[in-house]
Design a protein around this nucleic acid. Sequence first.
DNA 1: AATGAATGAGGTTTCATTCAT
DNA 2: CATGAATGAAACCTCATTCAT
Lengths: 208, 208, 208, 208
Amino acid sequence: MPKDIEVLSSVKDESLITIRREQIIKGAVKLFKEKGFHKATTREIAKAAGFSIGTLYEYIRTKEDVLYLVCDRIYNEVTIKLAPYQQQEGNLDTLRQAITDYYYLIHRMHAEFTIMYQETKSLPKNTRAYILDKESEMVKMFAEILRSCVKCGELALDERYVQVAANQIVVQGQAWAFRNWAYKHDYKIDGYIEAQTELFLHGLKGFA
Amino acid sequence: MPKDIEVLSSVKDESLITIRREQIIKGAVKLFKEKGFHKATTREIAKAAGFSIGTLYEYIRTKEDVLYLVCDRIYNEVTIKLAPYQQQEGNLDTLRQAITDYYYLIHRMHAEFTIMYQETKSLPKNTRAYILDKESEMVKMFAEILRSCVKCGELALDERYVQVAANQIVVQGQAWAFRNWAYKHDYKIDGYIEAQTELFLHGLKGFA
Amino acid sequence: MPKDIEVLSSVKDESLITIRREQIIKGAVKLFKEKGFHKATTREIAKAAGFSIGTLYEYIRTKEDVLYLVCDRIYNEVTIKLAPYQQQEGNLDTLRQAITDYYYLIHRMHAEFTIMYQETKSLPKNTRAYILDKESEMVKMFAEILRSCVKCGELALDERYVQVAANQIVVQGQAWAFRNWAYKHDYKIDGYIEAQTELFLHGLKGFA
Amino acid sequence: MPKDIEVLSSVKDESLITIRREQIIKGAVKLFKEKGFHKATTREIAKAAGFSIGTLYEYIRTKEDVLYLVCDRIYNEVTIKLAPYQQQEGNLDTLRQAITDYYYLIHRMHAEFTIMYQETKSLPKNTRAYILDKESEMVKMFAEILRSCVKCGELALDERYVQVAANQIVVQGQAWAFRNWAYKHDYKIDGYIEAQTELFLHGLKGFA
DNA sequence: AATGAATGAGGTTTCATTCAT
DNA sequence: CATGAATGAAACCTCATTCAT
């Protein structure tokens, strides 16, 4: 379990910090989605958050902190959403439900996911590692569900391929966000989830 | 078929342009891979290419041109590599072969693919559209092969899902590049190709 | 009446803007006089104004803005100085007085006038048009005084030539600034004003 | 009499130098008129002249040389045109004729005159002094004609004011070029010459 | 004599960050 | 705690000039 990374703030009042960071994340997501992390200036971020540049720097230390805040937010939501599925015996229905929940979450937060996806490399080394750790955990969670399904006999998936399969679930979910330009004309989220799920389960050969 | 976008050069000698652009692409790929497009400076690009900043600007007009050159290069290679598969009747073997060729190409050019993948949004609007067009063509090509397999009876895939499937092939290939951190401990490219192919064809349920 | 052109500033405090712009104009005039607009660098302008390059750009948006600021300043002063003569019945004494006031102003601001005169073409199109408009207004003002003199019988100047005459007054005044190298050995401003006035009024033939 | 300034050339063939310089001047005048000396690049100058940048530098040593070539050309033409009036006894008719010749020349070469007028300050010190010298000579020539008129009794102009008068003739001529925007709607060159001449001779008071 | 590719100093402008108020 | 003016390093790009061919 990755250790939390603290974004330092010179403000003492914790509840205020929460409020302001909320504003920062909300403004930043909108901005980053429009123009990307690099083309968004700190002044614009402050403005989008609803306060001055000086105030912004009371709650973060560098521009990269803002990006981290956004990424961290995503994984917090994911963690909350998928908590029920962790360390629990499951079957194919559990898997289907986890995928559905995960994909809907991505759909709801597609702006955030796209940003994370495209700007991760802009994070400083340590925070970047932290984010990748979080992502790995998520993969691990899906891997566990897959193993559960194997254990209870509903799936016959060789252990060697559990990793690819779990990664695939995660990637194809994120693809709904970062590759939406390719899907939006032909699919809605429900159809996408259905198609992906069936493809996973039955493969091309058995798919009708 | 998207119309080519010309990167203007003030140098007249076409063969020299080819040589210098080659140097630019090679240097830029290395650099962008290391620090990303935005953190790489034009002077560094020039240095990595092996000449002065002034010379660099004899062969491009803006920094974004360099990124475009890199992206364009990728699709040229892809087009060449996958040309044999275009507009041709095929079966499951054809599909397997196309996927294999495509994934090996990505493996060989993983640096380039990662860059393209993460920096596409930094391209100016028109070149960005051009690149997405190229990507769409590739998806379309895999879609056609899939339809061929359906036609010749080796596959039973409803037309409604051809799009997702084709996109999935493409995305999972690219994932080998941009998500290598997740795969490199457990897979080599051959194993990855094999696993992906089998998953596609037989799905989780029938996979052993 | 030409509409004012706003030079945008990212600073909000209006009075501070006034102060800083004053510094900018003062420094720039000195600098432009010495080396001309093109050879003066923005960094030098900032230094001459007494602050950093970053601060300079808080109060202007482009180097051309500085030139515009200088030109605009001149016409503000001219407008203030010559306001009493506008839209008012006048006679030869009025004319003499207006010329005298105008020429003294030019003398006092000869550096500024020389700059405006030589660098006007460096202004971007719209601001350039604005400046020429202002100049036209000034000519028009002298033309009106001339017409007054005709109306009250102190002058017999055909309407067809009012334009040249008015322009001549303006040009010869500016010549004191931009052509000072030709006059400074033989004239002081008073002698110059006197000579010009008499030449205008009596011509070469009657001049003694 | 100012000593000629040599623009060095690495080409030996004198007649070729003459031809090429002609091309340079012609191209440069067109270019400078359009965008000014500073915004015109040497490459553009070379292109406008009809040859390569390398060749351009066979016939000049610095960009400023081009400007000097243009200015020098003007005074050569003026000298040729006004040669008949030098060191010769004259009367009012001589004066009228000299002015007319001079103003027509300016009209014909208005592009060149405007350039010289606006870019003189961009010349390096020594060539600039040379050009101002040439200008002074011209003023002196008109001054001499004026003195002739006084001597032969057709004019009653105090010696103290000969300088202003001569300068005025020169300046108002140049104004036709550099201030054409102010005149072109109301005058043609003939009307302008007539108006100026009459104003000079009879002044505002006696002008009808 | 003509060419044009190469050079790099230096120009303008941006923007993350600080700090006095 | 909030503000926003000030800072200056550093980015992108231009262009006068050279020199090998």
